[in-house]
């Protein structure tokens, strides 16, 4: 039971990092990214392959995961700056699917559908089995806090103000002398870097990654988290990620107490619940649970 709670909290952590990263891209800068699962997968596979097949130390593997995420993010952003929002949604979704298909089909590199087994764990020899789960939760929590701190720092900084200006009207921002393209590509890359990092952390936690983990549904759940929590508000989307994850994973508890439905039916009901939650929240709280704070000029 408590082991389950620790594992679930760790999962919430991965979700929170992904949601914070998406908020940086979409909530703050207005760039659409439905390829979250792709960057997540790239980070996971990069770190997994480098440690399991090339024998890299875990720390370097994770850094490489983040770096691969950032590089892919910059590339996708550069390629897609001309596209309108809704087409960009389809293109980024396609990017993630192509990444997933490559992981599925290039057996020599990724072990395909069987899944890539990853033995390496950060500080794996230091802790016992019970303690290790707690240690990993602490590690993920630290990562969440760090990403949160960076995201908040960006939001409050002059850089963040430029991002919001681009979100509201990119023409005005460029008239004011801001290089919109550079800001967009850099911010998208930073977000994708966090997604890659989350993937690497996930890979060494689960220790066996397969393409079936990185379905487009992951991207959609993150989007729902951000919309439910409140786009643009970093605290709100932590709540959003928590709520969505609680419905996704927490309802498994239900099954321990009432055994009316089989696992398959319960999984359907979970997804229906999340969909209904999103629609109801948007209907009654159009800006999410915690709307973006309005910018207040400091009076001195």
């Amino acid at each position: 039971m408590s082991a389950y709670l620790v594992a679930m909290a760790t999962y919430v952590g991965f979700f929170m990092i992904l949601a914070l990263a998406l908020n940086l891209q979409w909530g703050m800068t207005g760039m659409v990214n439905f390829g979250i699962a792709g960057f997540y997968a790239l980070g996971a596979y990069a770190s997994g392959i480098l440690t399991a097949k090339a024998g890299w130390p875990v720390g370097f593997g994770m850094l490489a995961g983040a770096a691969v995420g950032a590089a892919a993010g910059a590339l996708v952003a550069l390629l897609s700056v001309r596209l309108r929002d809704d087409f960009l949604a389809i293109v980024t979704l396609g990017f993630a699917e192509v990444v997933r298909l490559i992981c599925l089909n290039e057996d020599w590199l990724t072990e395909g559908p069987r899944g890539l087994k990853i033995d390496a764990r950060p500080f794996g020899s230091v802790f016992g089995r019970e303690d290790y789960a707690l240690f990993y939760l602490a590690l993920v929590a630290t990562a969440v806090l760090a990403v949160f701190a960076v995201a908040e720092a960006i939001r409050r900084s002059p850089y963040g103000r430029v991002l919001r200006a681009i979100r509201e009207d990119d023409v005005v921002a460029s008239v004011l002398g801001k290089d919109v393209l550079v800001f967009r590509v850099a911010t998208f890359a930073i977000g994708a870097m966090f997604m890659g990092l989350a993937g690497a952390l996930f890979a060494h936690f689960i220790q066996n990654i397969s393409p079936y983990t990185f379905l487009p549904t992951v991207s959609i759940f993150i989007w729902m988290s951000v919309i439910v929590g409140g786009a643009g508000n970093n605290k709100g989307l932590l709540v959003g990620a928590g709520v969505v994850m609680l419905i996704l994973e927490g309802s498994r508890f239900l099954n321990d107490f009432i055994r009316v439905l089989d696992a398959e039916k319960l999984s359907s009901i979970r997804i229906i619940l999340i969909g209904v939650l999103l629609i109801v929240i948007l209907r009654f709280r159009p800006s999410g649970l915690m709307p973006e704070e309005k910018f207040k000029p400091t009076s001195d």
Binding site: W26, V32, D85, D86, A89, T217, I220, W223, M224, I227, E264, K265, S268, I269, I271, I272, I274, G275, V276, L278, I279, L282
Partner: peptide, 21 residues
Amino acid sequence: PVTLLVVSIAVAFILEQCVRL
């Protein structure tokens, strides 16, 4: 539009899972 796009995916999930149910 992007929010509505996510909503339409939610609708897709709901309908598909109802069929699955």
